[in-house]
């Protein structure tokens, strides 16, 4: 490959002639760059060979067998950016379809607000945990996880905090929310303040119930463990995303005898939470908590939409497994046209 017809050519790829074919699975059938059986090479812009838009590049191919070799003619092509990544068209279609399903579910929930929700023990225990703290005259500790406001799990944790703060204000209990991220702290301050106003107890709100500790993982853990051991909160809430600090926090909390409710989408930390907490919201239950606690028809409707989405995914999984197995048994790649629809292409 060269930057000019007369410029020196650089070798960008070398491979055996029986490899790098365009084959099913590499590209979706609707965005194949060449016919099946053709060779292809993916070139990524790098410091050694930067590819710039609008600039012509020259390519030639050398075919070698033993000591014999033959050069192709020089081909010219100009680099141009794409407006749309057609390989991800299926992803876009599914997002649009899922949005449609959600909106339809919300509309259905507005018409018929009596949607059945299965019992989530961890969320039913929120009231019990706050009541216990009130009876014991001890504070409630609420953690929003290690993520920033750009993480969906942190947003879910702040939404649940709003519901918890309303109940805390109602019971006139003390709430402590130590933070790792100042932006999350600022958001939570506003949420807690508004929750106290909504509960009719603006006088009970304390500005320092939300406070920043540090953004360092283990320094934060040590500080929160210290709070647990000194102030002995009667209820600990661990919502949001967590890493190695999860067990350090929950095991310390368990040793103080606090009732512990966790909710996380960090699948690698779930075993620790299940082991050490009284109740654990697993994965999607964290996102369902807001709807469950508020019982608002619009939010509950989105849960119905999620369930429909999951049912479709389960259907696609079963169908895909059957077709892929059948394709192997029959020795055909004819099913790849259907299977490509559900694949993630970059």
């Amino acid at each position: 490959m060269a930057e000019g017809a007369a410029a020196p050519f650089k070798k960008v790829a070398e491979f055996p002639s029986n490899t790098r074919y365009v084959k099913p699975g590499d590209f979706p059938w609707w965005a194949q760059p060449a016919a099946k059986g053709d060779h292809y090479v993916k070139l990524v812009s790098s410091q050694a060979f930067p590819i710039e838009n609008g600039k012509p590049y020259f390519v030639k191919l050398r075919v070698r067998e033993g000591v014999q070799e033959v050069w192709s003619e020089v081909a010219e092509a100009t680099a141009a950016p794409n407006i749309f990544n057609t390989a991800q068209a299926n992803n876009l279609v599914f997002v649009v379809a899922f949005t449609g399903v959600l909106l339809a579910s919300i509309a259905a929930a507005r018409r018929n607000p009596h949607v059945h929700l299965r019992r989530i023990a961890g969320l039913d225990a929120v009231e019990e945990a706050i009541g216990r703290s009130t009876e014991m005259g001890r504070p409630i500790l609420y953690l929003t996880g290690s993520g920033g406001m750009d993480e969906v799990s942190t947003i879910a944790a702040t939404v649940i905090l709003g519901e918890v703060a309303k109940k805390v204000a109602h019971y006139d209990t003390s709430l402590k929310v130590p933070h790792r991220d100042p932006i999350v702290m600022a958001v939570c301050q506003e949420i807690v303040k508004e929750s106290y106003v909504a509960a009719g107890r603006p006088d009970a709100y304390k500005d320092d119930s939300n406070f920043f500790i540090t953004s360092d993982q283990f320094s934060y853990t040590a500080a929160v463990d210290g709070i647990m051991l000194r102030e002995k909160p009667a209820a600990n809430f661990f919502m949001g995303s967590y890493f190695a600090e999860s067990l350090l926090l929950t095991e310390t909390g368990a040793s103080t005898g606090a009732i512990q409710i966790a909710g996380t989408d960090s699948d690698h930390q779930l075993p620790f939470f299940v082991t050490t907490c009284d109740y654990t919201l697993i994965g999607e239950e964290l996102y369902a908590a807001s709807a469950y606690l508020s019982r608002e028809p619009v939010l509950v409707g989105t849960l119905r939409g999620q369930d429909i989405g999951k049912a479709l995914i389960m259907g696609a999984l079963i169908l895909g497994t059957c077709l892929a197995t059948l394709g192997v048994l029959l020795g055909t790649d004819g099913f790849s046209y259907l299977l490509d629809l559900f694949k993630d292409f970059k």
Binding site: V95, F98, T99, L102, V152, S153, I155, A156, D265, D267, L270, I282, G283, E284, L286, Y287, A288, L299, T302, L303, G305, Q306, G309, K310, I313
Partner: peptide, 17 residues
């Protein structure tokens, strides 16, 4: 299975927001 549920929940919450 957990990750599928989490992904659906994240998409749903993102859309709601």
């Amino acid at each position: 299975a957990i990750l599928i549920g989490v992904s659906m929940g994240q998409v749903a919450l993102s859309l709601k927001i």
